[in-house]
Computed example of a mutant assay.
Amino acid sequence: MSYRVQSGDNLSTLALRYGTTVDALQKANPQIKDVDLIYTGDTLNIPGAKDGFDSSPSRSGPNLTGGTTNQPANMTTGEGTKGPGGSPFDIARSHLNKNAGSLKLEGSGVGADMEDWVPNNVNCANFVSACLEQAGQISDAQHDNSVMGLQAKLDRDPNFKRVSLQDAKPGDVVSMKVGSGQHVVMFAGWENGKPMFIGSNNVNSDGSQRITISSMNYPIMSVHQYQG
């Protein structure tokens, strides 16, 4: 989850309030250089107290926006973007319903490219970055665990351009404004005139993330399309 720092806050009190640790808070917010110094108005990532693992693969629950957790049968995807390593949408879809905490433990593919230290409730950019890496659309150096950081790197990459949602193709990177924070997913196609998105979403009962496809109604900040 994201939290806007209030007057009087410090990492110790936030760690106690949200059942985490100062060390975990600093790892989730690499912009913090001094654990005794945070600023009112800053937005922090708050790591979850629990990790999400695939002990019950059949478990289902509401997703980020109340849509479906599996690919809808009547969803139209169309031709997606591809890199030297394939389609990031197909790569993401191959991990549907895996929990982010379990996926990061896999020794190859997307799991190997995801960074283990990222808390399991804020893996959206970690997952999208890893899918783009596996597709060969970005380099390891372009991997970013923050939405705004990934957005900025794609803006600087001549192989990507911003497009409208109406021109989006499966695998395009969609950055959204969610409350006081941000979320990033990939475009997955259309269902009954509604855009669908695939990504690492906060769908588990403990607040951790799982790979799902769903509709979302958040304001879109950007749609980045790979040009090759």
Rank of each mutant, 00 (worst) to 15 (best):
S215R: 12
A92S: 10
N126T: 01
K104T: 11
Y39R: 14
H183E: 04
P30A: 00
L105R: 15
G111Y: 08
K50A: 06
G193P: 12
T40E: 15
S58P: 00
L37S: 15
T77Q: 13
V185D: 15
M186P: 07
D90T: 01
G66V: 03
W117Y: 15
S175E: 09
K98S: 13
G66E: 10
P47L: 04
D206M: 01
G171N: 10
Q71W: 14
K104V: 05
S56G: 07
A112T: 00
S205N: 14
S102V: 03
N204D: 12
H143F: 04
N29W: 05
V174A: 10
L44N: 05
K153I: 02
N63C: 10
I213N: 09
S175A: 15
L150R: 05
S146T: 15
L154Q: 10
N29Q: 05
E133N: 07
L64C: 04
N121F: 06
S205A: 14
G48P: 07
M221L: 14
G8I: 01
V223D: 08
Q209C: 00
L150N: 07
P119C: 00
R210W: 03
I211D: 01
S102G: 13
S146R: 11
D42R: 05
D23L: 08
L165F: 04
L96T: 11
N201Q: 14
G48L: 05
N145R: 13
D90S: 09
Y3C: 06
S2L: 10
D144V: 00
Y18M: 01
A24E: 13
N204C: 08
A24F: 00
S56T: 06
T65N: 15
P72T: 02
G199W: 01
L96P: 08
D113W: 04
A188V: 10
A188C: 02
N123C: 13
K194E: 14
H224W: 14
E191P: 03
A100I: 11
P170G: 02
S7N: 08
D9C: 04
M1K: 11
G107S: 08
T69Q: 14
G228E: 03
S215V: 08
T212R: 05
M216P: 03
A141G: 12
G101E: 12
N120W: 08
D140M: 00
L16D: 15
Q209R: 05
H143K: 10
C131Q: 07
V22N: 08
P219M: 03
A100G: 06
E191S: 13
K82Y: 04
G207A: 09
N97R: 15
E115V: 12
D167L: 01
P47C: 03
G8C: 04
G171D: 06
D157N: 15
